[in-house]
């Protein structure tokens, strides 16, 4: 969900930049030495996932894994997404440098929301699969909403933009729900330590 350069107004670009700066600052503060490698791993996964296009629905959509990043990283999702987005801009011309702040906020805020909303249920083995699916699904839905808001605040009508973006991203919501569910389930089996609250 990358907004291209030349669409958003300057106040939105600045607000996005401020949110991202704040989030990244808190995220970096919260990363402790044991977490550095998982953060880098998930950042790499996000970086590469953006290249996997899903040829379903009306628009041009790709995987983002933001639900997974949110569940696993919490605030650290901000620096992880920022770095990956910067490299995507540099290597693949996704989005742009000026919209980097907004694009990071669009994807990191839903990640953070999903972290706080679903984390308690993820830690419980019974509710884990459902909670992980919801995290993956909800993250994309929230990101679609925030993107629509950003576009609506500039010029396009909110309803029109939201309909377009959500319709295009429905396949992604379902796919990411499944990916998050299986990945979290897999990690809970092979690496249960990383699902404990102290980790986040």
């Amino acid at each position: 969900m990358h907004i291209s350069e030349g669409i958003l107004s300057v106040p939105i670009l600045i607000s996005g930049g401020l949110v991202t700066t704040l989030g990244t600052y808190i995220g970096l503060k919260k990363i402790d030495p044991e977490q550095i490698m998982p953060v880098a791993l998930l950042s790499s996964a996000f970086f590469v996932a953006g290249l996997v296009h899903v040829p379903l629905g009306p628009g041009s959509v790709h995987l983002m894994l933001i639900g997974l990043l949110g569940v696993m990283l919490g605030w650290a999702a901000f620096p992880a997404i920022l770095v990956a987005l910067f490299l995507q801009t540099l290597f693949f011309q996704f989005g742009g440098i000026a919209v980097l702040g907004v694009n990071t906020a669009i994807m990191a805020l839903p990640a953070l929301c999903c972290h706080y909303l679903t984390r308690p249920w993820i830690e419980n083995p019974k509710t884990r699969p459902a909670a992980a699916f919801i995290a993956g699904f909800l993250a994309i839905l929230l990101a679609s909403f925030i993107t629509s808001c950003a576009l609506a605040l500039t010029d396009t009508g909110f309803t029109a933009a939201a309909q377009l973006i959500i319709a295009a991203n429905i396949p992604i919501m379902i796919i990411e729900g499944c990916i998050t569910m299986f990945t979290v389930g897999f990690l809970a089996k092979v690496q249960p330590e990383i699902l404990y609250p102290e980790y986040a």
Partner: peptide, 9 residues
């Protein structure tokens, strides 16, 4: 402008 944030020139 595709209306969902993509734009090309």
């Amino acid at each position: 402008d595709s209306g969902d944030g993509h734009r090309g020139e």
